[in-house]
Design a protein around this nucleic acid. Sequence first.
DNA 1: GCACAAAAACTATATTGTAGGACAAATACA
DNA 2: TGTATTTGTCCTACAATATAGTTTTTGTGC
Lengths: 111, 111
Amino acid sequence: MGEHLGEFEQMLLFAVLRLGDDAYGVTIRREIERRTGRRPSPGAIYTTLERLEQRGMVGSRVGGATPVRGGRRKRFYHLEPAGARALAMAYERLQRMAAGVLPRLQDLSGA
Amino acid sequence: MGEHLGEFEQMLLFAVLRLGDDAYGVTIRREIERRTGRRPSPGAIYTTLERLEQRGMVGSRVGGATPVRGGRRKRFYHLEPAGARALAMAYERLQRMAAGVLPRLQDLSGA
DNA sequence: GCACAAAAACTATATTGTAGGACAAATACA
DNA sequence: TGTATTTGTCCTACAATATAGTTTTTGTGC
């Protein structure tokens, strides 16, 4: 089936990978905002994460209670092997499309 | 409105940039296939190109006759400044998400 | 218990991605 | 000049992704 990853999906997967044991909705969202300046809505995050899980790209488990005031139990995500492969491939493909033309792109985009 | 570029859109823009004066439907498609192994249908190419043009990311002009046997006139595409900026930004964002975690990704994807 | 905080899930819609075949136009050649 | 051949684009329809906003759940502190 769908081996392809959209742009946002790739970002989510990179965020999950980077966050390791602390990857759940809120931190993932924060990470994307920090690194890219984009501010996706919570809904965007969860919906996409769910789709990725259905496709076997990520897995999840529900965490236990925490000593913090409030807070629903977190659902922690991790990258599955299939997700890692798909992400590596998607990244490489874009890399190949970009190879060699980045200087020209910088020029044109007025850097 | 939409400043964002999807995955496929980015590929098209990179192809247009690379091909320079020879960027039209058929060559763009061939370039993507060569570099990524993906084989998008003609329809995918033209539809996406048209959307990108409506958003001001690319411009086009229709070419003249050629000394080659047959063949409809080509529509040549070029990157507009807005397209270059959007592409540079999209690329940079992904780069920032990927920074530092690529080694781990290689591991997990079984390289 | 009850108020409050944190996080996730649901619902609905807009935007992207995609295929495949119909159509158009240009040249060669009888 | 007219018809076959070639190259390339456009049309139509549909599937998948992206996204916001609102609601629900669950845990803590008092």
